[in-house]
Simulated assay, not measured.
Amino acid sequence: MLKDGGSNIDLKSRKVLRTLTKKNPSDLVLVIGTGVSAAVAPGVPALRSWRCCIEAVIDAAEQFEVLHPGDIVEFRKRALREQDLLVVAHDLIRKMSPRTGDNTPSFFQDCLMEVFDDLETHIQNPTILESIISLMDKGATVLTTNYDNLLELYGQKIGKPMESLDLNDKAKVMQWAQSRLQYGVLHIHGLYTRPCGMILDPSGYKDVAQDNVLLDELQSLYCRKSFVFLGCGETLRDQIFQALFLYTMPNKVSMEHYMLVRKENADAFYKLQADMLLNGIKLMSYGESFTNFPLYLTGLSALICKA
Rank of each mutant, 00 (worst) to 15 (best):
K170A: 07
K170D: 00
K170Q: 15
K172M: 12
K172E: 14
V173W: 06
M174D: 11
M174I: 09
Q175I: 01
W176K: 07
W176D: 03
A177C: 08
S179P: 00
R180A: 08
L181G: 04
L181R: 15
L181C: 08
Q182K: 15
Q182V: 13
Y183C: 09
G184V: 05
V185R: 07
V185Y: 09
V185N: 03
V185L: 08
L186F: 06
H187L: 01
I188D: 01
H189D: 04
H189G: 07
H189N: 07
G190I: 06
T193E: 13
T193H: 09
R194H: 14
P195F: 07
P195L: 09
P195S: 06
G197F: 07
G197W: 06
G197P: 08
I199R: 12
I199Q: 09
L200H: 02
L200N: 02
D201L: 06
D201T: 08
D201S: 10
D201Q: 13
P202I: 11
S203H: 05
S203V: 06
G204Q: 06
Y205I: 12
A209E: 06
Q210V: 02
Q210T: 12
Q210H: 11
Q210E: 14
D211R: 12
N212V: 10
V213H: 05
V213Q: 12
L214H: 10
L215W: 04
D216P: 00
D216K: 13
D216H: 11
E217T: 15
E217W: 07
E217F: 03
L218D: 03
Q219M: 12
L221F: 01
Y222I: 15
Y222R: 15
C223K: 15
R224H: 12
S226T: 10
S226L: 02
F227M: 12
F227N: 11
V228M: 08
F229V: 08
F229N: 04
F229Q: 03
F229E: 02
L230W: 03
L230I: 14
L230D: 02
C232V: 10
G233Y: 02
G233L: 02
E234D: 12
E234F: 13
T235D: 06
L236I: 15
R237D: 14
D238M: 06
I240D: 01
F241C: 02
Q242I: 08
F245H: 05
L246Y: 01
Y247M: 04
M249I: 14
M249Y: 00
M249C: 15
M249K: 15
N251V: 02
K252P: 01
K252E: 04
K252F: 00
K252M: 14
V253W: 04
V253H: 12
S254T: 06
S254N: 00
M255I: 01
M255P: 00
E256I: 10
E256T: 15
H257L: 04
L260G: 01
V261G: 00
V261A: 05
K263H: 09
K263T: 01
E264K: 13
E264N: 13
E264C: 11
A266S: 09
D267E: 13
D267N: 10
F269I: 06
Y270R: 09
K271S: 12
K271R: 10
L272E: 11
L272R: 13
